[in-house]
Simulated scan of single mutants.
Amino acid sequence: MQTSPHDHRGTLAAPLAYEAFLALHRPHYLAYARARLGPTGADAAVTGAFAALLCRWPGVISSCSPAAQAWQILSRRVRAHAGEPPGRTAEDVLAEDVRVLMSLGYDAEHSAGLTGVPVGTVHSLLRRP
């Protein structure tokens, strides 16, 4: 039996690994985005981030840290929806993101898993002024 990459509606079906990633991360991404944008902007930002992620999925999933790649996409989308100008260092952005996650009750290990960085990096970022 030959399988098709299309679903029963004739649209291109998302890879199973992507669907699993979406199911696992979307609630946490929404919590982060809601903390930054409120409920309306959060849904649009997260939906846009996952759409961008799907377009880049083969490269993301083959990278050494798919979670880090996905988080960068989400973080950029949220910042764009917030109207923040670009130009901050990646480390400053990640430090702020980790602080937001911690304010939501995520511990360092969970924050590290979501952002795709080592736990030691999370601890280091939290010590920054």
Rank of each mutant, 00 (worst) to 15 (best):
L104D: 00
A90S: 12
R26S: 14
V93I: 14
T115D: 10
G83I: 15
G113E: 07
V93H: 05
G116P: 08
G113C: 07
P39E: 02
Q72E: 15
A112G: 10
A42Y: 10
T89C: 06
V60M: 07
V93Y: 02
L24H: 11
Y29R: 00
R26W: 13
Q69A: 12
D97V: 07
E91A: 12
G116F: 04
Y29F: 02
S111M: 12
L37I: 09
L94I: 10
A42W: 09
R76W: 12
E109M: 09
S63C: 11
Q72D: 14
I61P: 15
A51V: 11
A51L: 11
A80C: 06
A44F: 09
L74V: 13
P85C: 04
G41Y: 06
A80I: 08
H110S: 07
L22P: 08
A68C: 09
P58Q: 01
A33Q: 01
A44K: 05
G87W: 04
A52I: 09
R76I: 11
A95N: 05
R36W: 00
D97N: 06
P86S: 13
V60C: 09
R56F: 00
S63I: 15
D97M: 06
H25N: 14
I73R: 00
W71E: 04
R34H: 07
Y32M: 05
G59M: 06
R99F: 04
G105L: 02
Y18M: 01
L94T: 14
L114P: 09
A31C: 15
E109K: 03
F50V: 08
G105H: 01
S65E: 08
E96A: 03
L54M: 13
R76T: 12
L74A: 13
E84Y: 11
A67F: 06
T47G: 14
E109T: 15
R79D: 10
L114V: 09
A20N: 05
H110G: 04
A95H: 07
G41D: 00
A67W: 07
A82I: 02
